[in-house]
């Protein structure tokens, strides 16, 4: 029973953590129709920025905002490559995320005071025991840690952060700038006719998407307690699968905001992985399970679309 409880704990916590990544994809993929591979790099960048700053004693909430800015900057780089240099979306993401492998590593090594002499020296950032992380700082530290087998402190904090970023995105999409972004994805020519540069709008959208991905990376670091240079791998699948599961299951519900659907999608996706673990599937199978789930989500969402068209 306690194994079940603790897996529910982990599922929810991971769900909220990746929900922010999936919301980023909501902006870049759903709104802008841009398959953005940059997140493999920016999730890690956000984690590196957060890890180094928190380790240096910077307020973790501030570090979370900085990680957003880091993702925002690298995301706009992808946008720049696409709109100004005319490079295809997939290639832009590959280029930037490849470059970020080095950038992240160098920043980590320099930040940890290591040298480049021994390759891979100090390529991980350990948050350590005494470091003031999000949970050890006001206001999260006021919450009780252990309630009936749940780590309530971590769960509530992650939930609150996910909801905060959801509300921010909802609010942004209702502003003039946000509506213009939605118009860009829907009909870029319309934006041109509004005398606005649609290229700038695209850059902005990718910047926001990657800002969210970086925040997600920061939370991963908060949750795991360390930065691992490999932690960006697989983020495209996690983000997109969560997004597509959420939108295809709950997207049609009228009163529910798409961002809410995306959070639920992320939790469900983590739930499926958690159930596999509970059933005793070795973690080596994790990535193939992810790929299969993603395939099911894609097939499911297109089947649902067809069904809707038939009914219409």
């Amino acid at each position: 029973m306690s194994a079940l409880l603790s897996s529910i704990d982990v599922i929810l916590q991971d769900g909220f953590m990746y929900a922010i990544l999936a919301m980023g994809y909501y902006v870049s993929y759903t709104i802008l129709d841009f398959p953005d591979l940059t997140v493999e790099g920016t999730v890690l960048s956000g984690g590196v920025a957060f890890g180094l700053l928190v380790r240096a004693g910077v307020n973790p909430w501030l570090a979370l905002i900085v990680s957003f800015i880091v993702g925002f900057v690298f995301g706009s780089l992808t946008g720049f490559l696409h709109v100004k240099l005319g490079i295809r979306p997939l290639l832009c993401g590959i280029l930037v995320s490849t470059a970020l492998i080095s950038v992240n590593l160098v920043i980590t090594i320099v930040g940890m005071g290591g040298t480049f002499a021994g390759d891979g020296a100090l390529s991980t950032i350990d948050l350590g025991r005494g470091v003031p992380t999000l949970l050890r700082t006001f206001p999260a530290n006021l919450l009780p840690t252990d309630v009936g087998g749940f780590n309530l402190q971590r769960l509530v904090t992650f939930f609150a952060i996910a909801v905060a970023f959801k509300l921010l995105l909802d609010a942004y999409l209702k502003t003039k700038s946000g509506l213009l972004l939605r118009a860009t994805g829907s009909n870029a020519q319309y934006v041109t006719m509004l005398a606005k540069d649609q290229r700038v709008c695209k850059i902005l959208g990718l910047a926001i998407g990657n800002g969210y991905a970086a925040v997600s990376g920061a939370l991963i670091v908060q949750s795991r307690g360390n930065v691992n240079q490999g932690m960006g791998v697989g983020m495209v699948v996690i983000g997109l699968a969560s997004l597509i599961i959420g939108l295809s299951l709950f997207g049609k519900i009228r009163f529910m905001k798409p961002t809410t659907a995306v959070i639920l999608g992320a939790v469900i996706y983590q739930g499926c992985l958690g159930i596999a673990t509970l059933l005793g599937v070795p973690s080596a199978y994790n990535k193939i399970i992810m790929a299969v789930l993603f395939t099911l989500a894609l097939v499911g969402s297109s089947a649902m679309k067809k069904g809707a068209e038939k009914n219409a």
């Binding site: 209702k174 502003t175 003039k176 700038s177 509506l179 509004l194």
Partner: peptide, 20 residues
């Protein structure tokens, strides 16, 4: 409504105020 709200704001700044 959203289409018209955008057009209504043409040649003005698309900032962080409410669109509609």
């Amino acid at each position: 409504l959203e289409n018209m709200a955008l057009a209504d704001n043409k040649n003005k700044i698309f900032g962080l105020t409410r669109a509609v």
